[in-house]
Every structure is written in C-alpha cells, then in structure tokens.
C-alpha cells in the first residue's frame, strides 16, 4: 500500500483510540463523588483552556482579536446563541481590520 495512505490510516487510528476507549470501557456510572465532580468540570476547563489565550492569535492581529472577543462576550452575556455570537465576532474583526 502507498506510504501516504498508511500514514493516513495510522493517523485515523490514533485519533479514534482516545475518543473510543473511555466510551467503550466506561459504561457504568462512576461512583466516586470526587471523580464525578472532576469529570463534570471537564467541559468548562477544556473550553476555557482552548479559548484563551488562543483566541488572541486567531485573527492575525491583537486589536481585532480583542474586539471580536469583546463582542462575543457581550452578545453571549445578553443571551445570544452560537450563530449570532460567531457572526458578531467575525463582523467585529472584519470591521477593525478594514479600518486599521
């Protein structure tokens, strides 16, 4: 088989493994309150870590990134959904980059 295809296959395997192993092997409700609390907070922790400071480097310059982030924070604070928040942030970045 072609070397590239083998590489792609291996990548697919090592991407799927960490996704599937816990799903398949941890089918029971974990009883430890500590562990349950730990896992409960994973989305908040992972999302926080993935968002900041990564967002500051997502647009090519700091000022437009800060503008986009501020708009996203404001819109979501006032209860707007995923799509309006994303579109608002994109528009803010576009506007800042257009004027600077």
């Amino acid at each position: 088989m072609d070397q590239t295809l083998i590489a792609v296959l291996l990548m697919a395997v090592v991407t799927y493994l960490p996704r599937v192993v816990p799903m398949i092997f941890v089918r029971k409700r974990l009883e430890s309150p500590f562990l349950r609390s730990f896992l409960y907070y994973v989305p908040y922790a992972a999302l926080g870590a993935m968002t900041f400071p990564g967002i500051l480097y997502s647009t090519g310059d700091l000022s437009s990134a800060i503008a986009g982030m501020s708009v996203a924070l404001l819109l979501s604070f006032y209860g707007k959904g995923l799509l309006p928040v994303a579109v608002g942030a994109i528009a803010a970045v576009y506007a800042i980059q257009f004027f600077l």
Binding site: Y41, S58, T59, G68, V71, A72, L82, A86
Partner: peptide, 28 residues
C-alpha cells in the same frame, strides 16, 4: 486574508457562547 482572518475567530466565539450562559448561572 481579510476573510480568512475574520473567520478565524468563529469557533472561539462559539466556545464563548457556550461558556458564558453557564458561567452566569453558576459560580462554580
């Protein structure tokens, strides 16, 4: 580049939209 740069923030903005409602409701 202008399109690419401004779209770059989209997924991050969605993360914020997911986090803020919970952060508003729960101190933890």
């Amino acid at each position: 580049p202008a399109v690419q740069n401004s779209m770059g923030i989209a997924l991050y903005a969605m993360f914020i939209a997911l986090l803020v409602p919970s952060a508003k409701q729960s101190r933890a």
